[in-house]
Measured scan of single mutants.
Amino acid sequence: GKMTGIVKWFNADKGFGFITPDDGSKDVFVHFSAIQNDGYKSLDEGQKVSFTIESGAKGPAAGNVTSL
């Protein structure tokens, strides 16, 4: 299901970062391709987001990332 969290950091040049889930679980990798907006796909440190957990090739990653 949907989770919420805070963006820990995001490197716009490399197109990835990490989200710290509100439930205290392990930080989740986020790739820019998972960001659900029409414009420039980037996130800001400290931004609140909702997301799902998808299993990627390198382990769990955030999917369906939407800013709240």
Rank of each mutant, 00 (worst) to 15 (best):
V28R: 03
V65H: 01
F10P: 01
Q47P: 00
S50F: 06
V7C: 08
V7N: 00
F18A: 08
K2E: 08
G5I: 00
K48D: 04
V28Q: 03
G59N: 07
K2D: 06
S33Y: 03
I53D: 02
K8A: 10
D13P: 15
A57K: 15
A34Y: 01
G24E: 05
S50N: 08
G46T: 03
L43A: 02
S42M: 11
K2V: 11
T66C: 12
F18Y: 08
D44H: 15
S50A: 13
K2M: 13
D27Y: 02
Q47K: 06
N64L: 05
D23M: 04
S33F: 02
Y40R: 15
V65S: 01
F10H: 02
T4F: 12
D23Y: 05
I35V: 11
K14I: 07
G63Q: 15
F51R: 00
D13N: 15
F10Y: 09
H31W: 02
A62N: 01
S67A: 14
S33E: 07
E45T: 15
F18C: 06
T20H: 08
E54N: 14
D27L: 03
A62Q: 00
T20D: 03
E54K: 15
G46F: 04
G39N: 13
F29L: 05
K2S: 10
S25Y: 06
D23F: 06
G1W: 06
N37E: 15
N11Q: 06
G56R: 13
Q36I: 13
F51G: 01
D44S: 15
F32K: 15
W9A: 08
I35T: 04
T52R: 08
I19F: 00
D44V: 14
P21V: 03
V30H: 01
E45G: 15
W9V: 07
A34N: 10
Q47M: 09
T66I: 10
G24H: 11
G5E: 00
Q36T: 14
I6L: 08
H31M: 02
F51E: 01
G56P: 04
S67I: 12
K58F: 07
A12Q: 12
D38E: 13
K2R: 09
G5K: 00
N11G: 03
I35S: 03
V49N: 00
Q36F: 04
T66Q: 14
T20Y: 05
L43R: 00
K48Y: 12
K14R: 15
E45H: 14
S42F: 11
S67H: 13
E45V: 12
N64S: 08
A12T: 13
G17D: 02
A34S: 13
F29D: 04
V28K: 03
S25A: 10
S55L: 14
K26E: 12
Q47A: 09
K41Y: 05
D44A: 14
G15S: 03
V49A: 02
S25I: 05
I35C: 06
G15W: 01
N37H: 13
G1N: 10
Y40L: 12
G24W: 04
D27K: 03
N37P: 09
S25W: 03
K8W: 00
S55F: 12
N11F: 04
G15R: 07
N64I: 03
V28M: 04
W9F: 13
G1A: 13
V28N: 02
F32G: 10
G1S: 14
S55W: 14
G5H: 00
S42G: 10
A57M: 12
F10Q: 02
D13S: 15
K26A: 13
K2P: 03
K14A: 09
T20P: 00
G39S: 11
T66D: 07
D13F: 14
W9K: 08
E54R: 14
I53A: 07
K2Y: 11
K58D: 09
V65Q: 01
G15Q: 06
E54S: 12
S33C: 03
K58P: 06
P21D: 01
L43M: 06
H31C: 04
N64D: 15
N64K: 11
S42Y: 11
D27P: 09
F32C: 10
H31A: 05
P60Q: 11
D44W: 12
K8G: 03
G17K: 01
T52Q: 09
I35Y: 03
G39H: 10
K2I: 09
P21C: 05
K41A: 11
F51L: 03
T66V: 14
A57H: 15
S33W: 03
G39K: 09
G56H: 10
G17A: 04
I53Y: 12
D13G: 15
Y40T: 11
L68S: 13
L43S: 01
T4H: 11
A12S: 13
D27E: 11
K26M: 09
D27A: 06
H31V: 01
S42N: 13
D23T: 11
L43D: 00
T52L: 07
F10I: 03
A34K: 12
K48F: 10
